[in-house]
Design a protein around this nucleic acid. Structure first.
Lengths: 348, 348
DNA sequence: TTGTAAGCGTTATCAT
DNA sequence: ATGATAACGCTTACAA
């Protein structure tokens, strides 16, 4: 096993190939004003000495970074967010695949607190990344607005559109309102009358949309709105567990629960099992997201599927386009969702 | 909303603060040969104009990249690997958290084929990253060996140690052999005599260790080795499904299966349910990894837990140390595993 | 088609 | 303690 010292630069290659540095650069960058003959010579030298131009030198000389940031913000837990919430995992996967396809690399950061936000900003300011995607942040998050204000390229997921705070950003939302409306309507059509809702934190735009959709479906069905039937969680399993207990204390008669995400539904399953309440015989449960475990639960969880993979590819493609075109217009997507009917809801 | 143009560089800050570029650099890098007074002046200017040094310029001038690569190799599927295998997700999460804690960022790539390996190498060669972690690759993967030979800093998971191919690398393994031995012994102690094994692809070092551990436990118990009881999968759900069907065709009398990973166990569950065979009443099943869904399965899957989080932190800490010290010695870890007893194995 | 030279924004080595 | 100045390795006018 021979140890190769890899310290050659463009000048070395130039000397070896008997051309100038600029010609090497032209070959490396595939310019067409180079004779086939010259190109061959240079290519051979590059090949032979395994020459790869340094990214930092290329960037300093004017090329854009081929790295994109993926920022997963979760200010609830201090650690291991990606594990904690299997919601993020498919999105990350989609982002990585889509970016790699296009020759970009993904740098991932988990943001738990203020100082993480500062580090994230620095990646834009010091030009490590050419753009970034934020998922999981509060509506109108200040730090993200700062970055957009400074004209960096960013896509934000699940944000209110139409406010001029985000007038230079790419917004990609799932149809929380529509999904919630459909889920609630589905329960109503199954004959349920006392339908509860375990909501998310209202700082999240999705939580607001889901609550609205739930209320509208009730209203359209002519049901009175009972505020006792709505209790707030924060998208964690534990909060779902607590919420359902609180709910059942005040509402002995509820027959169905629309839970704002599957992770909280996991907590609902746990609490109900503990209390000896059967799903769906005693209480029907419908979730949101369709995370991986949902189909393995017994009874399998009926839920509203969010196409994280599609959202990922839309995010990345728009981001790359904005970077390539050096454009800064605003775009807004609202991705439809689907009800996945499994076993956790019963007809009354 | 005012648009800030952020084009200032160190010279600008120097002029504003009334000092030289070098002094700005000294302040930025926290050198101590600067008067408090001067430092203050510079800091104020930096603060006011929101100056952040460009990473590419710093690197070109000699600083090391604060980016580490995480390479998830999966040559089986062409897409969305991270989603496909929930095995990788907690590891990735641990890697990101641990690196972020230490001021490093993680750039993730999924490697599906040869050309992806080339891109991965380039990240080392062009100095985008200061080191990298490989997970999921075959034993003695050529491309990884190339990188190690060229003296870049790398940690490889689940690799054979002691071969001089990897004499300059950090190897982090889980105790596949010990875990397989313990799992098989557990089944034996439960009274099982006809114990099958659904193995992984033998190009993976873990698969080899698990097969050995299984055989040794059988041997120590004085059981004859029946090659019919061993069938190969490739760690995917589908392969587990196929394997168990093949197994049951040739062995009507088997009472327990040791499956080399939980993902294949998912396939086993599916196939057995389809065939009307009850777990654990008819057949006991034990898996490996303890992926997230395992505890939600009904019956909950008894399995061997691999501490991916611990392996992640060991990997990153050793990698960063090697980078900081510019050292290139080899290290080898063998992380213990634990049996998690749930509901899928029955005493005979 | 090719070469020369300026510039990108830092850090590091000298002087002072 | 601070300031000039020379790298670092590339791209890109501009010249030839």
């Amino acid at each position: 096993v021979v140890t190769l010292k890899r310290e050659l630069n463009a000048s070395d290659i130039a000397r070896i190939a008997g051309v100038s540095r600029s010609t090497v650069s032209r070959v490396v960058n595939n310019y067409d004003n180079v004779t086939e003959e010259t190109r061959e010579k240079v290519l051979k030298a590059i090949e032979k000495y395994n020459y790869v131009p340094r990214a930092s030198a290329q960037m300093l000389a004017g090329k854009k970074s081929k790295i994109l940031g993926l920022f997963i913000v979760d200010t609830k837990s201090e650690n291991y967010t990606v594990t904690t919430s299997s919601y993020f995992s498919p999105f990350m996967s989609g982002v990585i695949d889509e970016a790699n396809k296009k020759g970009y690399k993904i740098l991932t950061m988990v943001i738990n607190n203020e100082s993480d936000f500062i580090s994230a900003k620095e990646l834009f300011y010091n030009r490590t990344i050419s753009g970034g995607v934020f998922i999981g942040c509060n509506n109108n998050e200040k730090h993200v607005m700062d970055i957009i204000r400074d004209e960096y390229k960013v896509v934000v997921l699940e944000q209110e559109s139409g406010t001029n705070h985000f007038n230079k950003a790419i917004i990609v939302n799932s149809d929380s309102y529509g999904g919630a409306y459909a889920a609630t309507k589905y329960l109503i059509e199954l004959g349920h009358k006392r339908i509860a809702h375990i909501a998310g934190d209202e700082r999240h735009w999705t939580a607001i949309g889901k609550l609205k959709g739930y209320k509208k479906a009730l209203e359209d069905a002519g049901f009175p709105l009972d505020e006792d039937l709505v209790v707030k969680g924060n998208y964690t399993l534990e909060s779902g567990l607590r919420a359902v207990k609180e709910l059942l204390q005040n509402n002995k008669d509820l027959t169905a629960i629309f839970v704002a995400n599957d992770t909280m539904a996991l907590g609902v399953y746990e609490a109900l099992e503990e209390m000896g309440i059967k799903i769906p015989d005693d209480i029907s449960v419908i979730g949101f997201d369709d995370i991986e475990v949902s189909k393995y639960l017994r009874p399998a969880l009926t839920t509203v599927k969010v196409s994280l993979l599609k959202m990922a590819s839309i995010s990345i493609n728009n981001l790359i386009q904005a970077i390539d075109e050096e454009s800064n217009y605003s775009v807004y997507y609202n991705i439809p969702v689907d009800i996945i009917i499994r076993e956790s809801c019963k007809k009354l």
